[in-house]
Each structure stands twice: as structure tokens, then as C-alpha cells.
């Protein structure tokens, strides 16, 4: 019976929608994916993949402490996210250790602190859901917070869309024409911390960096226009989330992992078949190719 209904595409898509938790998971994950995908364009062009990894891991103790104190977890995550970057900058400036070493050192330190805190605080924190995400078990207060943060990030990115593009492309020119580069730097960091917070609900802390870089990298292979890159990045992120959740529902797989795997497969597809930058350059397969 289960298998029969599974065979039609129609029920493959509609059956899960009869469950309230699935509708919620699909909606929230799409929203989160859109936010992360939007930001992803900037992070991949700025070369902040490692920074994204650092911030997303560093938010861990913030989330734990916020839960323990009954504060919004986004607040704790935000403080530790931005704090980690400040600390990275400080250590880099004051020591002779190279930047990538400092980044690795700081974020693993914060992450370890988070894990230790979870074992000590022993409240109702579910370590598994923080590490691996739990889009299917998202609570109502989390939904509200996620929507609020997502809207905030989207509004900020939309307002400063062009300034951030300039900041990623040529910060010196930005500075020369009187644009506040310091502000843009911290704006991007703030958005990164906030996106990491909402992203970790979908796929968890360990994999959230994928949400922040893979869609952007995929889009980068498919276009030479910045605006198109943003659109493709957002779309590929949303589609990956939907695929991931459906697949995890039908095959009983870890949801976060499925979402990220879907993103990785889309990236691989672009890597192989992108019209201009893919290995096989799909365009050449068609007769009209000049």
C-alpha cells in the first residue's frame, strides 16, 4: 500500500503535506534556505567560506547559554558569532600565527566550549538537534524567531545589496568614495551570524556552512551577472531544501544531511555541465554553439 502510493509522483509530493509538521518544515526550511542562499553569493565572492565555518561553529556556546538562561537563542548566537570574529582579528594582529590557523583555533575552541557546556548544563537542550538540525521538530517560538531573523537579514541585504557587492569587489574604491567600509564589514558579519543561527535549525551547526557557501558556488558556475547569481543561489538553496526534506521523509534519512547532500549534487551537476564553466560545457553539445 505504502509502496503503491509512493510510485506516483503526485502522492510523493502531496502525501507528506497532510502532516502539519511536514508543512511547517518545508516552509521554514525554504525560508532559511532563501536567506542563506542570498548571503551565499556575497560570502563565496568575498572568499569567506572559512569565516562562515568559523562563525557557524562559534555560535554553539551562545545557543547553549541562551537556552540555559531562557533568552532567545539568536541573541546568544549573535554575540558569540561576532565575538569569535573579533577574537580572530585580535589574535591575528597581536601574534605571528597565520590567519587560517587562528580561525581554526578559535572556532574549535568555541565549539568545544559549547559541547562542554551542554554536558554540564543538562537542561532540555537536545545536543543532537543543535549539531544536526531538526527541521521536522521546530517549535512555535522557534518559528517566530526564524521568521523575524530571516526578514531582518533579507531587508538588510536588500538595502545594502549594491554596497556589499562593491565591498566584496573593491573595498578600496568604496573607501575612496566615502562609503563606510567598516560598517559594511560588520554588516556582512552580522548577517553571517544571523544566517548561521537560522540555518542551524535546518541542517545543524556542523553542516550550516554548506548552506552558506554551496548555493553561491553553484550559482557562480552558472552566470556572469551578480543579480542572476543571487537569484540562482536562492533558488538552488530552496530546491535543495525541498528535495532534502522529501527524500528524508520517504526514505527515513537524517534531514539536515539530506538537504546538504542535495545541494552538493546540484553543485556537482553545475560543475560538470555548466554552459560556460562546467567541465563538459553543455553548450558545446548543441549544434548552435558558436
Amino acid at each position: 500500500m505504502e509502496l503503491c502510493s509512493f510510485l506516483t509522483l503526485d502522492s510523493f509530493i502531496t502525501d507528506p503535506l497532510t502532516h502539519d509538521f511536514m508543512r511547517k518544515a518545508l516552509l521554514m526550511s525554504s525560508l532559511v534556505a532563501a536567506v542563506c542562499g542570498f548571503l551565499s553569493s556575497y560570502l563565496t565572492l568575498k572568499g569567506w567560506a572559512l569565516m562562515g565555518d568559523a562563525v557557524s561553529h562559534s555560535v554553539m556556546p551562545g545557543v547553549v547559554v541562551a537556552y540555559a538562561l531562557g533568552l532567545p537563542f539568536s541573541l546568544g548566537a549573535f554575540i558569540f558569532g561576532v565575538g569569535s570574529v573579533a577574537l580572530i582579528g585580535f589574535i591575528k594582529q597581536k601574534s605571528r600565527v597565520k590567519e587560517d590557523t587562528v580561525i581554526g583555533l578559535v572556532f574549535t575552541g568555541f565549539f568545544a566550549l559549547g559541547i562542554v557546556l551542554v554536558s554540564k548544563i543538562k537542561s532540555n537542550i537536545d545536543l543532537h538537534s543543535i549539531l544536526f538540525g531538526s527541521p521536522l521538530g521546530i517549535s512555535l517560538s522557534d518559528v517566530k524567531q526564524t521568521i523575524f531573523i530571516s526578514l531582518l537579514v533579507v531587508i538588510l541585504l536588500s538595502i545594502f545589496r549594491k554596497d556589499l557587492m562593491l565591498y566584496c569587489f573593491d573595498p578600496r574604491h568604496a573607501k575612496t568614495v566615502g562609503i563606510n567600509v567598516f560598517f559594511l564589514h560588520y554588516l556582512l558579519l552580522t548577517c553571517l551570524s544571523l544566517a548561521a543561527v537560522v540555518g542551524l535549525q535546518s541542517v545543524g551547526i556542523i553542516l550550516v556552512v554548506a548552506m552558506l557557501i554551496t548555493p553561491g558556488a553553484t550559482a557562480y558556475l552558472l552566470t556572469d551577472k551578480f543579480d542572476n547569481m543571487t537569484v540562482i543561489s536562492v533558488l538552488s538553496a530552496i530546491i535543495s531544501s525541498l528535495i532534502g526534506i522529501y527524500v528524508s521523509f520517504w526514505f527515513d534519512l537524517e534531514t539536515g544531511g539530506s538537504i546538504v547532500l542535495a545541494q552538493t549534487f546540484i553543485f556537482l551537476f553545475a560543475f560538470l555541465f555548466a554552459p560556460r564553466y562546467g567541465i563538459f560545457k553543455l553548450k558545446k553539445l548543441f549544434a548552435g554553439y558558436k
Partner: peptide, 18 residues
């Protein structure tokens, strides 16, 4: 970064941003 996805028009327009 010559691989930045941006056109001639967009780069020159950046001269006007200020």
C-alpha cells in the same frame, strides 16, 4: 578579482555610488 560576476557597465557605475 577579474572573475567577479560583474559587467563593464556595473563597474563604471560604481564610480557614481558615492
Amino acid at each position: 578579482d577579474s572573475q567577479f560576476p560583474i559587467s563593464v557597465w556595473d563597474v563604471v557605475m560604481m564610480g557614481r555610488y558615492g
